[in-house]
Design a protein around this nucleic acid. Structure first.
Lengths: 174, 174
DNA sequence: ACAATTACGTCAGCCATATTGACATATTTA
DNA sequence: TAAATATGTCAATATGGCTGACGTAATTGT
């Protein structure tokens, strides 16, 4: 490699020094960036952002979720959630129901409109995943799932169990 | 004082309607969230954010990168880059060198300090990836790579080739 | 040679999303 | 009843995106 300038100020070109997994680090960056780009475009037309997407997704997938549980899943603060949640409620995508057992709680549910938007947002992502699995010739889809799952902090994997009891596509939807 | 719940107001619990890959959608969300959390904590102690990380990473991995190329990789605007790049330059993590072929260009290089920080940030991510591969019992690591690569927009996969070919920009580097 | 284009820097302002800390209210629990 | 809990909200702040406009230096094309 060449260095146009001789100085101690900057380094010679170099890629990886140690056991740095630059390849997978970058692949995760690029993959996630494009993975979120599809819903982002749709959201923009609704005047929503990525934060709304996350809320809508989890409420749709996990109906009756309380505010505290949602905060725990998203790992954001109450104040950050408040704004987007209020917007989603005001515009009729999500409704709150007083908790039946504990009336301090607010159970969250998507409306029909909310469900439809959640599906609209999940579709392009699912399509992208499906074609990626095909294109990459993945024989054992469970392997990819296990890898991604193992990337999650161990103490937070409980969240995964809560949101989908077992692995696989089928969630028993009708 | 929420209005009494009407049964048509909210949906009954339901997970997936169609061929929505909720499992992988969520796994990608959780995996990426935790994947970025390690460097985030380190960056905070330096007064930097995720944006600085991305710049530092690509300049470190791809020395001599020009500003225009960096913008193309990050897919952000010049103004968004300007702030963080200026900070990284002012604090001595990155230096600019006038392009040898085209003196309008500014080639970017990490300093020793910059390289060290880039490594410090990449280490926990690489460790996380390594243990995830082990834990998940991935036999064929290339499969995971192929999957993630296939998740990237086809027209942008050229960026992956560029950054993973070890000989720099491939533009001659004369 | 000169005009157009390019690469980069920068100014000014806007928006979305996140943060912390404090405080209010209703409800449950000890 | 007092304390703890679940939620809502206010004010202030930071980060990292965005657009549009403009300036300068250097290169390119005719």
């Amino acid at each position: 490699m060449k260095s146009p300038i001789k100085s101690t100020e900057y380094r010679e070109p170099q890629a990886t020094t140690e056991e740095l997994d630059v390849t997978l680090i970058e692949l995760l960056f690029f993959a996630y960036r494009d993975f979120t780009s599809d819903p982002d475009a749709i959201l923009a037309s609704y005047g929503f952002g990525r934060a709304h997407h996350r809320v809508l997704h989890f409420v749709n997938h996990w109906p009756g979720l309380t505010v505290a549980e949602l905060l725990d899943v998203l790992r954001i603060t109450k104040q950050s959630l408040a704004r987007v949640l209020k917007q989603l409620i005001d515009t009729g995508y999500i409704v709150q129901v007083q908790g039946p057992r504990d009336r301090r709680q607010r159970e969250l549910y998507v409306t029909k409109k909310g469900h439809e938007l959640a599906v609209e947002l999940a579709l392009p992502q699912s399509r992208r995943i499906r074609s990626a699995l095909e294109e990459a010739g993945i024989k054992d889809r469970a392997e990819v799932e296990r890898f991604l799952r193992a990337m999650v902090n161990p103490e937070l994997r409980a969240q995964l169990d809560r949101s989908h009891s077992s692995s696989g596509t089928g969630e028993g939807g009708t």
